[in-house]
Write a protein that binds this DNA or RNA. Structure first.
Lengths: 231, 231
DNA sequence: CCTGCTTGTCATAAAACTGTCACATATCAC
DNA sequence: GTGATATGTGACAGTTTTATGACAAGCAGG
């Protein structure tokens, strides 16, 4: 599977190693930003968003773990995948790094192939299991757990119901035709009756009704459906 | 910082020195076990777990370095801190000992104060770094012994089950895809069916069920698995 | 070479999900 | 109101996904 072009922040003070990383990342078609100081990295992370962070454990300015801890403490960037690199190849150090929130770990010296493999694996994951949290007032939808929370009350939907809600939530108030929904939810190449949408809407409504939001999916006769929270 | 009570294994054939060590360790509130033979020490290390090993380089039965090499090689997971003691205070010998995996080194004769200081330093390090104890409410996972405690009830898992639980516990509530678990638990380069994850999950669940946490590993249909303690 | 334990795979059972249909209701134009 | 059209609803079967038990290969320790 090809991972599309990503932007990777490399925090590493050893120039030769950093260059090596950069070359390999670029060979896979990714953009890279290099940074050799922890405090500078912190600023960069505040300013921009990256798809992956390669973090050396031993860096000037701020220790790697400190940076990681800060990163995980912040809400916004908390899902940024982090690959931690270090010369401390001891098991306990590794465990500690992972506990602090690193998603993977690579010991120095490393094989370039392994670096690439781990990076690609992390990127693959992050694109398939993104933690999207839509938040329309009282309703939260978490793409990662396929769960929906309405005023704290948990609601676990079936895959199709979830996708349907997710799709309609992206444009609250907008009317979606059955054809449109079939395309986005079921996929452009599915052989499914339009009436199937009705059935799924019904099932979704039933679930939502359980938390007092049964009417948030409305029917526009002759047009389709739309989503809007009951006020 | 006060280091809580630890159990120290002293491997030393000179009785007077051994007694001296013992007295000082006990004065700091630690338990000690004395052993004057390398082979016996090996048996003890197999049978029990200690928090620190004070190892004389010159001991009967087995040479100190051999024991150390065995310890580091045999149980790759062993992170037991080792303080090596010897009369051979030459630099190169010292280097050799550290290379073999000793965590610190003390030349004979030694000042009792120095012994105590080094021991305390090692213990402090080990409690903050080595014995990583995950603690999600009632569940404790000890990376060193591969044991899991649930409300006091001990649970010894098989290697794979342990790794699996350990991986999922790092991000409680988060869903891990089978691919993700294969990468982290089995390794990125393993040729294992995705269904194997199911089998291992089943085995892990069975163990957890024995202590009333069978449902803490949940299935997210179409997505993967996640860990979350039953509340 | 045994022996016991771990683990990968497979076949099968069980469960969850979804598409469709038949019919009930609702809405609209006249 | 009446018929025509659109949508709601419940049931059911087929499909997909996961659970489970069995089994053998792999492996470490004797």
């Amino acid at each position: 599977m090809v991972v599309s072009k990503k932007h990777i922040l490399i925090v590493e003070d050893d120039v030769s190693i950093a260059r090596l990383m950069q070359i390999h990342m670029q060979s896979k078609g990714h953009d890279t930003t290099l940074c050799d100081d922890g405090l500078d990295a912190q600023i960069l992370l505040k300013e921009k968003t990256y798809d992956l962070l390669i973090l050396d454990r031993m860096i000037p300015g701020k220790r790697g773990l400190d940076l990681l801890r800060w990163l995980r403490g912040e809400k916004k960037t908390s899902v940024l995948p982090v690959l931690m690199v270090t010369a401390l190849a001891m098991t306990n150090e590794r465990v500690r790094g992972l506990n602090e929130g690193a998603d993977d770990y690579l010991g120095k010296p490393f094989e370039p192939d392994e670096l690439v493999a781990r990076v690609e694996a992390l990127l693959r994951r992050s694109t398939s299991l993104v933690t999207e949290v839509f938040d329309s007032q009282a309703l939260q939808l978490d793409a990662e757990t396929m769960e929906v929370k309405v005023e704290g009350k948990l609601l676990s939907l079936r895959p199709l119901e979830f996708k349907l809600l997710q799709t309609m939530m992206r444009k609250p108030g907008r009317v979606f035709s059955r054809e449109q929904l079939l395309d986005t939810v079921w996929g452009m190449d599915s052989f499914v009756e339009e009436r199937t949408v009705d059935a799924t809407v019904k099932r979704l409504r039933k679930e939502l009704a359980g938390v007092g939001q049964g009417e948030s999916v409305q029917t526009i006769r002759g047009m389709g459906y739309r989503f809007q929270l009951k006020s």
